[in-house]
Design a protein around this nucleic acid. Sequence first.
RNA 1: GGCCUCAUCGUCUAAUGGUUAGGACAGUGGCUUUUCAAGCCAUUAAUCGGAGUUCGAUUCUCCGUGAGGCUACCA
Length: 468
Amino acid sequence: MTKVRTRFAPSPTGHLHIGGARTALYSYLWAKKNGGEFLLRIEDTDRTRYQPAAEASFIDGLHWLGIYWEGEVIRQSERTAVYRAHAQQLLDSGKAYYCFCTMERLELMRDIQRKKGRAPKYDKTCLRLTPTEVQQNLEQHVPAVIRLNIAAEGTIRITDLVRGPIEFKCEELDDQVLVKSDGFPTYHLASVVDDHASAITHVIRGEEWIPSTPKHILLYQAFGWEAPVFAHLSLFINKGGGKLSKREGATSLLDYRTQGYLPAAVVNFIAMLGWNPKSTEEFFTLEQLVHAFELSQVNTANPIFDTEKLDWYNSHYIRQLSIDDLLTYCQPYLPTADPVYLKQIIALEQERLKKLSDITALTDFFFLDVLQYEPALLVWKKSTVEATRAVLQKLLPVLATHSDWSATGLETALIGWIKAQELGNGDVLWPLRVALSGKKASPPPFALAAVLGKDRTCQRVQAAIDLL
RNA sequence: GGCCUCAUCGUCUAAUGGUUAGGACAGUGGCUUUUCAAGCCAUUAAUCGGAGUUCGAUUCUCCGUGAGGCUACCA
């Protein structure tokens, strides 16, 4: 049994797309599940769309998810000689040929074909050139590409690991360009040569590659190589339909980090988008996914990328964090302050966070000297301004003289006091909470008071009385 | 236009030639409760349409319809 080897092969034209991240994840999982290896290859053969920063962000994003690869990153731009030599091999064996047709001619040809209701396809004009003519063109530096010579008969059958058998008629296949006029290979040549060179056994990629797979099979045949197994993954789509675009939210993996999602949540979420375990288990670590993952259980339909469930996963994983880890994750969203104080604060909000970034708005009142809120907010349900003011005025000396300033100590004391005063909990605790937080939703006031300390608690209650 | 792929609750999905079509998220209601959150309980909600095969189809076949992809010297 040969060792399973997979690869993720993004093109450095922008950020790491969330769909690409899932492709990388599934490739990684499949390799690891089978005790194999996972590689990273940068497909930088298109000079016009190349973005220098892309590779670093791919690496950053993959590592963030916990995905690591075997060996060095492979860069196709560093291997042009290899592709060139392989193209020459095909040229020599007559399986590829030079084409000198201009873009204008090709476009005209395709227009006519389309108007006739046929698939646009190169008409092999340059295949009829004599060796002498080809030589002359090359010597005169006429712009040339190298095309794969595809015979018009026969059928290519592939058995996709996700979709099952797919057939293509050779007559519908275009003579694919293998080497561009700038000397760089196209994706088709480079990926086949590299996948073979890297002994890739399973090509796991997006379904946009299904139509070119028969051309890749033909290339393997032309070289006399055994083709790998293919598995084509569905594509994420928007809520309103259509290819996942920025209009519907973030498409870049790293945007989710910026927004305050934990990698564990993102991994779990995207893993379940298009794949499901046999069990009804919802939570999987990367390690657990490695064991549970099965390509045969991958779905073929295009899932709508809806992040509602991501929020649920994220809040779940946030609640699992230790306070120390939570602080590390939340620090970018918090002002600089004493770590001990920050830990007290984030502990109060841990179960309320959907995203780490929520911590900023939820805890702002801990870092303000004066709170801004509507005085009417202090008044509980059917209570009145007067009654609320009276309650807070009575409460203030109680707080000022209370000694056990722990949350539980405060709770015991205050609940007892409320009973003794024959008041409702809401009559006291609601205005107290608003006085301390300035918000209509917050952790219990006992906890707020405990973190704020006696002085600030009393100051804020006094400020509330003054507001009323 | 041509070729390819796909189609179960709002979303992610499970299941089977015979089921009350299951779970999760979201929603709704309740419990708890000073609020929010969490937790617990309950609940709404789906097999795209039409033929065919069959005793029986959501499942198999065909035709529609819809969606997505490809149709570059981009990947």
